[in-house]
Amino acid sequence: MSKPFDFPKCLKRNTFHYCPGCHHGIVHRLICEVIDELNLKDKTIGLASIGCSCFLYFYIDVDILEAPHGRACSVATGIKRMRPDLFVFTYQGDGDFSAIGLGDSIHAASRGEKITAIMINNTVYGMTGGQVSPTTLLYQKTTTTPLGRDPQREGYPLKVAEILATFEAVAFCARSAVNNPKRVKETKNYLKKAFKAQLENKGFSYVEILSSCPVNWRMDAVSANYHVDKLTEVYPLGIFKELPPKK
């Protein structure tokens, strides 16, 4: 078990390029802790998506394939079908997973691909400068909803975890956040459960992690961190589906 102040083994020493206060860094560390604890480095293939986290390979020392925007779950399907012995996870933003890639993501889940999808939900397209996303909150201002997201024009926030939880072939589906110590630990717990669901071949596993985006929310890091609490009102945290462990 990793202890506080450990620098995870499979986390490379490069400094992160993320904005000050962005939660990507915390999630990267948690993923590496779980990979180390479950001893997965030798058999892991990570799918980097297109967005702020496209540089996943600078940070996590496992085999990583860069998937076209939105297609990580399809690419992961191709990998896992050919090499069911490998451990395959995708690391995607809300735009990548639930906008352009929603078709790929939902069908991978519905087919029960034995992969783990991680969606970082910060309600905007971060890398491109903070445009509206399917998970943007109502009335939230973004660079493409300057007067705020209007339900008549942009519809309502997309609740991906709730949707995927209704799928037969989904083995684990949860949403968490990392904006306070308790939730950081909870997120690591969910990641471990999701990884184990894959290792036990139970089906598709999904962890949605609410994240701050200080620069694009036009907030300082600490305010943005607390603003994630606002997100939890629209995106409640918790485990939405968990198949019982195999006897």
Binding site: L65, R71, S74, V75, R81, M82, L86, D104, H107
Partner: peptide, 19 residues
């Protein structure tokens, strides 16, 4: 696959692991 867009990306993944 559910679409050609998805199918070609599955090919991409499989090819990357030597298929």
């Amino acid at each position: 696959a559910e679409s050609e867009t998805s199918a070609i990306n599955m090919v991409l993944g499989a090819s990357a692991v030597g298929a």
